[in-house]
Every structure is written in C-alpha cells, then in structure tokens.
Design a protein around this nucleic acid. Structure first.
Lengths: 235, 235
DNA sequence: GAAGTCCTTTCTGGATCCAAGAATGCGTAT
DNA sequence: ATACGCATTCTTGGATCCAGAAAGGACTTC
C-alpha cells in the first residue's frame, strides 16, 4: 500500500482542525500516549505531528513537561486582524484585474449566499435566545467562501497560506460564544461584501483594496469590543 | 542536567541557518542517517527537526523518498516581496507614533552604519572583480538591523515573525551570486533608508508607510531583473 | 540492443524500548 | 499543623529495532 500521506501528517491535520474548531480548549495539555492510543499508532508519529503544530504556533512545547495548546491573548488577536487586513488588501488588489467572468460569477454567487445566511441568522437571533450554532458556522463558512474566491483569482499561494493562518488564530478564540452581540457585524459585513464585489467588478483595484482592508479591520474592531465586554479573562 | 532546549529544536535551528545561509543547496536531499551521525544523535530527533522545517516550508517531505530542500521559484520570490512590502509597511506605520527617543537614536545609528557599509561596498565592487562576500554579508545584516529597529518599536511579534519568514525565502536564493549587478540597489537602499527615518522622525506615519512599502517593492523589482538576466534556470 | 522481470540494497515510517526529568504523595521532624 | 526530604509514578526525549517502499542492478527474453 503506497501511502500518499504519512500518519504524522494525517494526525497533524486532524489535531489542527480540532483545535481550530475549538473542540480542544486552549491551555489543554496534550498527552502523547493518550493521543497515540486514540489514533491507534505509536507515540513517534504523534510527536512528529506535534512538532509540526508547534512550528505553526498552534501548540507550544515545554521541554520535559508536555505540549500545551496555545491560547491567544487579546493582543495577538488584534495583531492577527491587522495582518489579515493587509494581506486581504493585497490579495484583493492583485485579484481585481485578474478576475475572469467565471470568477465574477462565483463572487456574485458567494455574496448572494452570504446575504441569505445573514438574513436567516439575524432572523434567528431575533427570535431565539439560545441560537443554534450550526447556522452561525454556515454563515462563517460562507463568509470565508466569498474571500476564497478572491484568493483563488489572486493566485498568491503564500498570501493565502498566511492569511488563513491568521484566520485560524481567532477561530479558536471563544469570541463566538457571544454570537448574540454580533447583529451589527452581520449587516455590516454584508454591505461590505457588496461594496468589494462592486469595486472589483468595476475594475478599480485601489478602491477594492481599501474597502477590503477596512472590511477586515472593522470586523476586528467589533470583535475586540465584544471581547472586552466579555471581560478580560485571558488565559 | 535540565535541558532548556531539546535536541530536535537545536538541530532544527542549525539546519535552518545552514539552508538559509545557502550552505546547503536547494534541491539537496537530506539523508536522515547522515544527519544523525553528523549531529551524533539518533534519527528520531532529526526527523522531528525535519518536520518542523517542513511546516515552515523550508523543506518538503516526499513520502518514502526523503526530504528535499525546497527551491523557490521566481513566482514565490516575487510573492515573498509583495508580502514583505505589506508587512513592512504595516510595521512602519504602527512603529512611527511609538518611537521613543532611544529608538530614534538606534535608527539613526543603524542608518549611519548602513551608509558606511554601502560606501565601502561600492568602493570594493568598483575595484575588485571578485569581491569578498563577507563585506556583502555585513551590508545585508546592517540592512536588516535597520529594519529590526522598526520592528522592535512596532512591537508586533506576529508581523515580525512572518516578515522574517519572507526574508528567509530569498536569502537562500542564489541571487546573491550576482552581487556585482547591485550597484543600483546599494545607493537606492541607502537613500530610502534615509527617507524612511526622516518620515518616522517627523511623525508622519502614512508617509513612512508608503516609503517603506516602496522600499521593499523596488528591491524586489531589481532582484527580479537580476534573476532574469541570470537566465531562468529554475529547479 | 532494448525492454521487462526478479532480486538485492538502501532508506524511510513507524513501533518498541530505555534513561532521565518532573510531579506526587507519604512520612517525619519541628 | 506545616514544611522538608525521600521514594514512587508518570511522562517525556531519545535510541534502537523492524517492516515495507523505492531505487538499482543483473539476468532473461524478444
């Protein structure tokens, strides 16, 4: 059986997903043996996987003591948004003159889908107190799908990789517990997506760039205020 | 003996330095056993080190075939400069209002040192055909030292980490073999550093930002043309 | 002479084993 | 009761061992 991927890589991907999805809380100590029996392998590939996660900054090794899921501070979160704003701006600028009609159509579809989910989400949050999180997850995925169309057209793999790394940073944060506070964000994001698409469609890369940057920054600002209102319990 | 660092980490650092410094050519296959006897350890920590380098994108694993030092394509090099330009712009903008008198003094000193080395380097390249590379290395370090003052003041560890990763990308490229062609770059960099420092000192963050960005981009453009003139032997 | 098959060698990926560092808990002395 | 010291236990970092994949021949066949 010629394995196209190695166990260490599989485990790394799985763990990364789980941590990013928040299924493993920041601060948790990952026991090697525990993981090895969970994945039914020896500790060797587990440790190689952990090394990779460490290089990505997702976990941190404390020599002879174990690996710990890193928790991001408010400062790091803030910085991640700054970085993402710059990279998103760059990608949008580069993508604009490269957009094919197919890309534009895809962008339009992504925007529409995002709009629909936004409406549904606001509806839900107005009605129910304890909102279902699946809709929220879908909404967020639709958000990323919109941006992915742009990344795809920009054809800048490094930028895409780094920006997605920055995304990761705050996906695992517990900000999302305060979904209810986000009504403001929902509608704003929707409007900004429309503006970005229009600027791209009009071929004005500089305008698109500026709006894209502001789009990310304003999300960051809002999330920051939500975080503050949640109180400063940082780990 | 309570080891503060683990062997895997030490090896990773060493290998990274050697690859970035160009002592190990891109495309080289790294044999695990060879490395293990060179560092006088078993293959286990070697492999963990290699996993880390793989996560950083410095080497790539080819399952069951070995790890290979990644060679960067012209496109990747170009993209790395785009990214660095954005990040450097951001760092400069953020740093400007945060610069203490001490920082400004350090920036001034770094600029002066860079200027001196620039003069020395142009002198040398005018005289000797086969120029000594140590002076060139010093010059490059002085260049980075200047930018590091800014990163330090900006206090954005993520940005710094990513930007330095992008630096790495082209340090290992063989562009530097064509040092002779760089006279243009030498003087331009010097002028741009002065302009950046002046903008920062004047407190105009936006101006500093724009100049810093242009500074990186123009270096990128020049290096690109040098690369082309070297011929397109990409691996 | 070129291509295909089998066998040997080499090397990787993973499992297992071992030594040493860190935590834990108990007993004792103050 | 509290703090110190010592032994036990747990877990990590690293070494060694093993099975399977890929590369490299030699030998055969057309």
């Amino acid at each position: 059986m010629s394995s196209l991927s190695t166990k260490a890589d599989d485990i790394a991907r799985l763990l990364e997903d789980e941590i990013v999805a928040g299924h493993i809380a920041p601060g948790t100590v990952l026991r090697q043996e525990q993981l090895s029996e969970r994945f039914d392998v020896s500790r060797t590939p587990v440790r190689e996987a952990l090394r990779r996660l460490a290089a990505l900054g997702i976990v941190s090794f404390e020599p002879n003591r174990g690996v710990r899921v890193r928790s991001i501070s408010a400062g790091e979160l803030r910085e991640a948004f700054l970085v993402r704003a710059e990279l998103e701006a760059l990608a949008t600028e580069v993508a604009t003159p490269r957009m094919t009609p197919a890309d534009l159509a895809a962008l339009d579809a992504a925007e529409r889908r995002f709009s629909e989910l936004t409406v549904a989400l606001r509806e839900q949050s107005r009605r129910a107190e304890q909102s279902d999180s699946t809709l929220f997850v879908e909404w967020m995925q639709a958000n990323y799908a919109f941006h992915d169309v742009i990344y795809n057209a920009a054809d800048l793999p490094l930028v895409e990789r780094l920006a997605k790394g920055a995304r990761r940073t705050f996906l695992s944060s517990r900000v999302w517990s305060a979904k209810a506070e986000f009504d403001d964000l929902y509608v704003k994001n929707d409007l900004q997506h429309r503006a970005i698409r229009e600027a791209i469609a009009a071929g004005s890369d500089q305008a698109a760039r500026v709006i894209a940057k502001e789009h990310v920054l304003s999300s960051g600002r809002l999330i920051e205020t939500v975080l503050e209102s949640l109180g400063g319990q940082e780990r």
